[in-house]
Design a protein around this nucleic acid. Structure first.
Length: 518
DNA sequence: TTGTGTTTTATTGCCTCC
DNA sequence: GGAGGCAATAAAACACAA
């Protein structure tokens, strides 16, 4: 097995440049990891980013593009499935759903292909900005993008008040691979309008079809919420059940508590909690590939400030910039995404939240053990601002704390730095196929414009990527990949707290965290 | 070992935007 | 018209059960 995988990888490396042959080559775990991680941050990478990623991973830009394309499709497919399931549940419950106006109960059948769930990134981008009061500058520095991208990716579209419930109950309602997506709901839990094209002009909350669109997308949530009515507390226990307050020091222990507990553990009632999500058998990384991961420094790819910086520049130049900029999430990380591939005990772990789901079974009980979960995540939170600030590159002085806080916790899964870049990204061995070269020739003219504009950014990117690779990660930031979902859940709350929009959630630790961060 | 089902990768065509 | 994205499709790779 391992042998075959290695062979495969090698073959892959060797023949990547010869993609002409029909035989498809599986991407190495490292490549997939890099792609996944990058995808989690940039659903729609720019050309430069793709190229950079391709170079780093030893793939062709075409491959990267294709992979992203398929990955998005995969997301959509998953979301679709989720929606179908939810709709079924909703219907079977016989609950009269509050559809707002318009589409009635026929929410399952997509009125328009892909429309209700898969928002145009560009569209949502504008929305997020307007609806959340993000200034253009905020957008340029990633708020808007960050927010909107995730909104885009998530299926969570029930309107306003129910969105938080979704957020809580539906972490996997979006792409289970993309748990952090749900973090970008506004603190009001109000999702941006779902028809951004309209919203761009409207600049106010969605109404009519837009609202309906939002609501129908998670009919089950809406229905449940309607049922619960006042019994539902957004930040409280489910179904109106009041739990005793945590005793003092409840979080001091290692198995700290509900906050760090996976939803599925603490709240079995959550049908959509990650632990309840059906773990599809996936002949993926857990089995297809050897557990030991070949090192490659992907940290530089999404390399935090590097990309951020570059993209900031780009954002200023191009409204079309679709990418979210929360690559600053990697400020604390700055190391390889492969960090995430290897757990403390050396076992292969998910390289990101995406794979967490996939290998959840493998982790099994161990995954819940999370002895270090609380500590790590706590450490991480504690060090979040400091570390990120420390790592802020030049020119980021104007990054407000909001950005930093938000970004830092999201995807950064600081862990042991991967020092072994065993994967030799033999890019030269995988020269892009002839067609690609040809395509690039055609791209030349258009690229020239962008290149000119982004030359500085790109240069900076390259340089900073290299610099980023050298940055050591504070050990305190390291934590287990297994804890990722947990930490992310926590951090979602933080994220909400740092969004300077009226937060209606109640007095849970989120508020505390927020204040402490402030 | 084989058959079956699932996932991933590559290709192609169409559409939209600039 | 080119570029990028989406969707459909085919096929390979893989997991798993019999």
């Amino acid at each position: 097995m391992e042998e075959s995988c290695e062979l495969q990888s090698e073959e892959n490396n060797v023949s990547m440049g010869m993609m002409k042959n029909k035989k498809r080559k599986l991407k190495t775990p490292a490549q997939v990891a890099g792609l996944e991680k990058f995808y989690n941050e940039h659903k729609y990478p720019t050309e430069e980013m793709k190229l950079e990623l391709a170079v780093e991973l030893g793939l062709t830009e075409k491959q990267v593009s294709g992979w992203f394309c398929h990955r998005r499709l995969k997301d959509k497919r998953l979301l679709k499935d989720e929606t179908v399931v939810n709709c079924r549940q909703d219907r079977s419950s016989g609950v009269v759903q509050d559809r707002g106006s318009g589409l009635g109960q026929d929410s399952c059948g997509s009125t328009k292909h892909g429309d209700y769930k898969y928002l145009d990134t560009k569209e949502v981008e504008s929305q997020g900005i307007h609806d959340n009061g993000f200034s253009a500058a905020d957008m340029a520095y990633g708020h808007g993008n960050k927010f909107t991208e995730n909104v885009n990716e998530m299926e969570d579209t029930s309107s306003e008040s129910s969105s938080y419930l979704q957020d809580m109950m539906f972490p996997q309602g979006q792409d289970p691979y993309d748990m952090e997506s749900s973090r970008y709901l506004t603190s009001t839990r109000a999702l941006p309008p779902l028809n951004p094209k309209s919203a761009i002009n409207m600049r106010h909350k969605p109404s009519g079809y837009l609202k309906v669109k939002g609501e129908i997308e998670n009919a089950a949530i809406t229905a449940v919420k309607k049922q619960l009515e006042r019994n539902y507390r957004e930040d409280g226990p489910l179904l109106g059940v009041d739990f005793d307050p945590l005793p003092p020091g409840a979080f001091e222990g290692q198995n700290a508590g509900p906050v760090h507990e996976p939803y599925g553990v603490s709240n079995p009632a959550l049908p959509n909690s990650p632990d309840f999500s059906p773990v599809k058998r996936q002949p993926g990384l857990s089995s297809r590939y050897p557990l030991h991961m070949e090192g490659i420094d992907f940290g530089s790819l999404h390399g935090g400030s590097d990309f951020q910086d570059m993209q900031d520049k780009k954002a200023r130049h191009s409204i079309k910039q679709r990418q979210n900029f929360y690559s600053i999430n990697h400020f604390p990380t700055r190391n390889s995404s492969l960090d995430l591939l290897e757990g403390d005990n050396g076992e292969a772990s998910a390289y990101n939240c995406t794979k967490n789901h996939r290998i959840g079974v493998m982790l099994g009980v161990e995954g819940m053990r999370s002895d270090s979960t609380s500590n790590h995540s706590d450490h991480y939170e504690e060090n979040l601002v400091v570390k990120q600030t420390d790592l802020l590159p030049h020119g980021y002085d104007n990054l407000n704390l909001k950005n930093v806080q938000r970004s830092g916790h999201v995807k950064s899964k600081p862990s042991q730095s991967v020092r072994n870049s065993q994967i030799s990204v033999r890019t030269e061995e995988r020269g892009p196929p002839a067609r690609m070269a040809k395509e690039q020739m055609f791209k030349g003219s258009r690229k020239a414009k962008n290149h000119q504009r982004n030359a500085d950014g790109a240069r900076m990117l390259s340089n900073e990527i290299m610099d980023a690779k050298r940055i050591k990660v504070d050990p305190l930031q390291q934590y287990h990949v297994k804890q990722a979902p947990i930490a992310e859940i926590d951090q979602r709350k933080i994220q909400r707290s740092v969004v300077p929009i009226s937060a209606s959630f109640s007095d849970d630790e989120t508020a505390d965290t927020s204040s402490s961060l402030d």
